[in-house]
């Protein structure tokens, strides 16, 4: 049986891993390769790197650390942040990333998803969705590094997930922003609603604070993976303990 994935997320800024609360107040938590290697050795199933400063500044050069990470670890990893062209995606994939994730550029230019899927196959095209309640509905949020630059309307999150997968996205990472960094649990209602419209793998993001939250999101929202940052970076939860505990709860995991 396929294992549920535990995915540490590393926000990268200026070549370091940082962590903020509700997308602000970033604190340095370590070097990129050191953390990547540590998580891989502890049993993380996959890693996601968000180049958090990339999108608002319009940068899309290949971050030189992608190749260093690819050399250092032997588990899959995804690179996100500021990828707005097929060439930018190719640079990261050919440097050794297994997947690329697009968020704001896909919202501004949805055809990018079709182009990426056609060029590289859906299996390495992830669409990241930042979602929060706006005017009583789950809606997408973009350019999360700089609120001053939001340019287009807030789409309905569930509509956007259906459209993105229809265009060829091979995986959706749904980041529930109202929960991000506060460690009160994943947004089960929103993730379960997303599950119902998402035919490809769905990864939960935002809100992990305790081991129970992981069991909850796998059991109740039927997501394929759970992403978390601060609980791992700050050693609130150790990955080996988490996976053993989940196995005891009957969750299929890789030990």
């Amino acid at each position: 049986m396929l294992a549920k994935r535990i995915i540490p997320c590393l926000d990268v800024k200026d070549g370091r891993v940082v962590k903020g609360v509700r997308f602000a107040d970033h604190v340095d938590v370590g070097g990129i390769e050191d953390l990547a290697r540590r998580y891989a050795e502890e049993g993380a199933d996959e890693l996601v790197f968000y180049d958090i400063a990339a999108s608002p500044e319009g940068r899309e050069v290949e971050p030189e650390w992608v190749g260093r990470v690819a050399r250092a670890i032997d588990i899959p990893f995804c690179v996100a942040g500021g990828i707005r062209s097929v060439d930018a995606a190719r640079a990261r994939l050919f440097a050794g990333a297994d997947k690329i994730s697009v968020n704001t550029p896909a919202l501004k230019n949805p055809d990018l998803i079709d182009a990426l899927a056609k060029e590289f196959g859906s299996q390495c095209v992830v669409v990241g969705v930042d979602s929060r309640v706006i005017e009583g509905e789950w809606r997408t949020h973009q350019n999360t590094g700089d609120p001053g630059r939001t340019e287009i309307g807030h789409r309905r999150t569930l509509d956007w997930i259906a459209e993105a997968t229809g265009r060829g996205a091979g995986e959706i990472v749904l980041n529930c922003m109202d929960q991000d960094g506060v460690r009160e649990g994943y947004d089960i209602d929103q993730l379960a609603a997303a599950r119902a419209v998402c035919p490809v793998p769905l990864i939960a993001s935002g809100g992990a604070g305790a081991m129970e939250h992981f069991a909850d999101v796998f059991g109740r929202a039927e997501v394929d993976g759970a992403l978390a940052a601060s609980v791992f970076h700050r050693a609130v939860i150790a990955i080996p303990d988490l996976k053993r505990w989940l196995a005891d709860q009957g969750v299929e995991v890789r030990l």
Binding site: M1, A3, S122, P199, V200, P201, D224, G225
Partner: peptide
């Protein structure tokens, strides 16, 4: 009913 398509992740 085993899960979404494609098959993505760690399997035995």
């Amino acid at each position: 009913g085993a899960g979404p398509w494609p098959h993505m992740g760690w399997n035995a």
